[in-house]
Write a protein that binds this DNA or RNA. Structure first.
Lengths: 187, 187
DNA sequence: CTAAACCGAATGAATGTTCAATCGGTTTAG
DNA sequence: CTAAACCGATTGAACATTCATTCGGTTTAG
């Protein structure tokens, strides 16, 4: 956990908010600068370019997500409880940080991220599903597929809530997690 | 089905390709113009602004998707077959038109589309799920939720294939559809 | 005292949009 | 039948604006 200067934090935070509001384009540095109460030069003191700012912003928030997953996995829970825990905790995180979710969605589908081959098979989530398959709790499906489907479903569910008219009741959220669980767990 | 002039078609097509490659931003009109073999003014003959071009491009491709769904629903198939048909056909469409998928993802998460309240409860897919619930084929969950989850899952699955390392075998695709079906169908 | 953090006006390249002019075809008038 | 009038599509150079980035200077921290 590195220390991040206040100015850098302000730049990160402002960029996140503004990108959610005005989009990936439509958020010039000048706007970030004004919103963050920082001079233009300061941005270039911390980042080589706008592109690098955005990439670092992504990496930073990605690590926040990973930490959430790790925390759930560290708890002493049944396999099913862990699955529900990951789903609900990431969902809650997205609800509390809609700007992160929107930024992720934009980033992932942008040329910053496309053309990159990801090692989907690595990471805690893939391991978690691998373990479930070996235990017989989960259907025999490539773990990396299960990982991407799960993360996609969580994001979709959060957007369901965020995008408005469809605010989810607690019971409905449980129902949705149950859909995926029923789908991937061995009968 | 309206007639679209060749130039307009070329502009649409170029914009789609270039946005996939260079992103939503990073695709100036000048680039579209060059790629389409058209003069700058021509764009503004057909569209009031770049924004409107993008919005029309979205509406046009959205209608293509809807047509695919309608075609499946019009066939004489069992309920489950229709569900699989919609999933597979939309998946195939995305695979054949990755530029549409990427464009959609960018558009949906951009300020063009955010802040809009959608009538998720309308449309053929919601009706389809409403019908399934009444028939007892589908769990009792708000149809609009089922709709969004399904469309999200299809997009995720297509991206799984597109983004590279995870090319799906026919059998795996079936497996994935089965996950969602198992999850939403009444046991 | 020094180096790092920070500032913000200045810069120049890039971008969305405009508009006067051209072109090919179709209608109209004689 | 013919030529003039007219039309919408198309062009691309020109314009104003916006943007990322730079840089010379000031403040701050150790």
């Amino acid at each position: 956990m590195e220390k991040i200067s206040d100015k850098k934090k302000a730049i990160f935070s402002s960029a996140l908010d503004l990108i959610k509001e005005h989009g990936f384009h439509g958020t010039p540095i000048s706007m970030v600068v004004k919103h963050a109460g920082v001079a233009a030069g300061t941005v270039y003191h911390y980042f080589d370019s706008k592109d690098e700012l955005i990439c670092e912003l992504y990496a930073y928030n990605r690590s926040r997500l990973i930490r959430i997953i790790e925390e759930v996995l560290a708890e002493n829970l049944s396999y099913k409880q862990k699955f529900f825990g990951i789903y609900i905790n990431l969902y809650d995180f997205y609800i509390d940080n809609t700007n992160v979710l929107i930024f992720f969605e934009q980033f992932v589908n942008s040329p910053y991220n496309l053309n990159k081959n990801y090692a989907h098979s690595q990471g805690q989530l893939s391991d978690f599903f691998r373990e479930g398959i070996e235990n017989g709790a989960i259907k025999t499906i490539r773990p990396e597929i299960l990982k991407v489907l799960t993360l996609g479903s969580i994001a979709t569910t959060a957007k369901l809530h965020i995008f408005g008219n469809l605010s989810l009741r607690e019971s409905e959220l449980k129902q949705i997690v149950e859909i995926l669980w029923d789908g991937i767990s061995s009968t």
